Amino acid sequence: MKLKHILTGTALAAMVAIPAFAQDDTTTVGFVYVGPVGDGGWTYEHEQGRLAVEEEFGDSVETVYVENVPEGPDAVRVMQQMALNGADLIFTTSFGYMDQTIEVAEQFPDVMFEHATGYKRADNVATYSSRFYEGRAVQGHIAGQMTESNVIGYIGSFPIPEVIRGINSAYLHAKEVNPDVEFRIIWVYTWFDPAKEAEAARALIDQGADVVLQHTDSTAPQAAAAEAGGVFTFGQASDMLEFAPEPRISSIIDNWSPYYIERVQMLMDGEWESTDTWGGIGSGMVGIGEITEAVPEEVRASAEELIASIGSGEYHPFTGPINRQDGSEWLAEGETADDGTLLGMDFYVEGITGEIPQ
């Protein structure tokens, strides 16, 4: 029988021990989640990956997960407990677990770790992420043609390169199809807080936004938009299809299952090694959810062409000419951004107003 143990709330605070794993010949895999598995977004999709591992490997693999783990000392204790109880491989699935993952990996050199969206690696620590900015380009392309107010709202989680890349990509592609478009950005400093996310969505709508994008994990912005009426949204991390055909008119889907299965198989075969994986539309790690009938056919068709060109590698979402926010040149005509710059992106592109919080 599969081992699934959840620690949340007061149980996590009291550090109830994670039960020891099963037989020594069973590969044991742990998952550390920043939100609840039912968030409908980021953590939900990682949980689908865990379930896919179970389905793929049957009784040869045991899995355990802990949800709602804060990015700090609690994460260290959860990872340590998993390692002490026999985990062979631990996936830590939020950017804020980066330093904690490295710390615990040093303590357990025989346990393999994989950190999502980070950049620090070690002999027993691999990193993996998705090129979410590719999906943001598609969202911007659609949003720029769907807005009537020319105001697009964006709910940012934390001002880290991953989120800034997404904002820039969405803006550039909205501006390309609609030169009059404006972006209004609200930072909520959380990955998952339905109340804060709903409040941000309402504030953006009050500012005139009739399209709202988000880099947060709950469906609360979708619900706020549905309540307001006349506002379009996009699913984040998962399809959020319960809000289709509107306000949710498409989505970015994080498809972690193939990666998790591949990495567990490599561990079982003795072929695991520390790598850095950054997959996108072409590899299937980034999916684009159904573009609903609320979107005009010509817009849907042009979005599908954009998806195909990004997926084939024919087009890069950051292709010049592009200037930085202060008007200085970043990319010349036809030049594309290198991964190093994208991974450290800490600036807005020209046309976005406001400052990035420090």
Rank of each mutant, 00 (worst) to 15 (best):
R136D: 05
S130T: 12
R202P: 01
A143C: 06
E103R: 13
V211T: 05
A126W: 05
D210L: 06
G96W: 05
K196Q: 12
F192E: 11
N178I: 11
G153H: 03
P70Y: 00
I152G: 04
I142H: 04
Y97K: 08
P159G: 09
D99L: 01
V211K: 07
V181R: 06
Y119A: 14
D88Q: 03
T93G: 10
V177F: 07
Q145Y: 09
E182D: 15
T93Y: 01
E182H: 13
E162S: 12
E197G: 10
V188D: 04
G166D: 04
Q80C: 03
V212N: 08
G208K: 13
R131L: 09
V188M: 07
K175S: 09
G96V: 11
E199I: 10
G118Q: 10
L204A: 10
A200L: 07
G166V: 08
A137D: 02
D74E: 13
D88W: 03
M82L: 15
S129I: 06
K175D: 07
V138G: 02
S130W: 09
D193Y: 10
E103V: 07
Q145I: 08
K120I: 10
N168D: 14
M79N: 01
P179F: 12
Y119V: 14
S169P: 09
S94G: 11
V151A: 10
P73F: 02
F132G: 01
D180W: 07
S129V: 03
D210N: 13
M98K: 04
A137L: 04
I90L: 10
D193Q: 05
E134P: 05
Q100K: 01
D180T: 09
S130K: 14
